[in-house]
Measured scan of single mutants.
Amino acid sequence: MTSCHIAEEHIQKVAIFGGTHGNELTGVFLVKHWLENGAEIQRTGLEVKPFITNPRAVKKCTRYIDCDLNRIFDLENLGKKMSEDLPYEVRRAQEINHLFGPKDSEDSYDIIFDLHNTTSNMGCTLILEDSRNNFLIQMFHYIKTSLAPLPCYVYLIEHPSLKYATTRSIAKYPVGIEVGPQPQGVLRADILDQMRKMIKHALDFIHHFNEGKEFPPCAIEVYKIIEKVDYPRDENGEIAAIIHPNLQDQDWKPLHPGDPMFLTLDGKTIPLGGDCTVYPVFVNEAAYYEKKEAFAKTTKLTLNAKSIRCCLH
């Protein structure tokens, strides 16, 4: 018999989150649709729960009410004593943790798909938090293969000092899905179709896995975050240069030392320094102006996964 890495157990509980950011409308629209008619997301033997994560922000069509829901799922915020004085999103995070967690427990949901849009030209993107997770690498390989020839990129946010504390991190297997470009507060049919297909293929993978299909060893190309880059700023902290036209919409493309990065209003080009080629992502993302992030630098690498098969009882 072929030796293989056996994944822990079959997958039982899956959640699909929309509206973690209330103005990213593809996930909101799909989740609302699936709450009314969820036939397309159901798979035999699998509990799939669509869920609106930040209903107040969705109602106002804004990213958040008090603070970013997708950055506060750490033990400090989840452990705060519940009171009306807490920011709305912290209270909501505790409610979500109660419903789908608790985080880092045996009772937490197996998989959470968190649906997002970006204003950046990132196409279909899967966000991975753990480079050693054979199950998710296999799932992402399946999704990428199923979507081809449509490109699907994998963004690895594993980093020693950049801690995200994402909404989906309460699950055993957290999956971020990011599709763009799409303006905030807008629905685009092409973007919706791409996100819908990503979810379909992900659920198909889980179904095949649960039925005992063995997935042979595989490898995927990923883009691992190195650092986030702020806009150049003046002495008052105001933005002093904008994304250069040569960099705009060039997510995932190589940016070499000396290539144009920013452009000042008086026409001066600010190039990339250093001696390493990087791959920019979230270029000129609207939501990241407040976070002082013009783009993120990534490096390209390959992740390998062992063969996996479900432990059938």
Rank of each mutant, 00 (worst) to 15 (best):
5 H>W: 10
5 H>N: 09
11 I>R: 05
22 G>V: 08
29 F>C: 14
30 L>I: 05
31 V>W: 00
33 H>D: 06
36 E>G: 07
39 A>Q: 14
43 R>P: 01
45 G>C: 07
45 G>S: 12
48 V>D: 01
51 F>V: 07
57 A>C: 06
65 I>D: 15
68 D>A: 05
70 N>A: 10
72 I>F: 10
73 F>I: 08
75 L>R: 12
79 G>M: 10
80 K>S: 15
81 K>E: 14
86 L>K: 11
89 E>K: 04
90 V>S: 10
92 R>L: 12
94 Q>M: 08
98 H>L: 13
100 F>Y: 11
102 P>K: 15
105 S>M: 12
105 S>D: 12
105 S>H: 08
112 I>T: 04
113 F>R: 03
114 D>A: 03
118 T>S: 13
119 T>N: 14
122 M>N: 08
128 L>T: 03
128 L>H: 01
129 E>F: 08
129 E>T: 13
132 R>L: 09
132 R>S: 08
135 F>E: 01
138 Q>W: 00
145 T>S: 15
148 A>V: 09
149 P>N: 05
153 Y>K: 09
157 I>T: 14
159 H>P: 14
165 A>Y: 13
166 T>H: 12
174 P>W: 14
178 E>M: 06
182 Q>N: 09
187 L>S: 09
193 D>C: 12
195 M>G: 10
199 I>Q: 03
199 I>V: 08
201 H>R: 04
204 D>L: 02
206 I>L: 15
209 F>S: 00
210 N>A: 06
212 G>F: 04
216 P>I: 05
217 P>Q: 08
219 A>P: 03
224 K>Y: 03
225 I>V: 15
226 I>S: 13
230 D>Q: 09
233 R>L: 15
234 D>F: 15
235 E>G: 08
237 G>W: 03
254 P>F: 00
261 M>R: 01
265 L>Y: 09
272 L>Y: 10
275 D>C: 14
279 Y>I: 05
280 P>S: 03
281 V>K: 02
285 E>M: 02
286 A>H: 07
286 A>Y: 08
287 A>D: 14
291 K>I: 06
292 K>D: 11
292 K>S: 15
296 A>Y: 08
296 A>S: 13
296 A>N: 09
297 K>F: 15
297 K>L: 15
302 T>Y: 11
305 A>E: 01
308 I>D: 02
309 R>H: 13
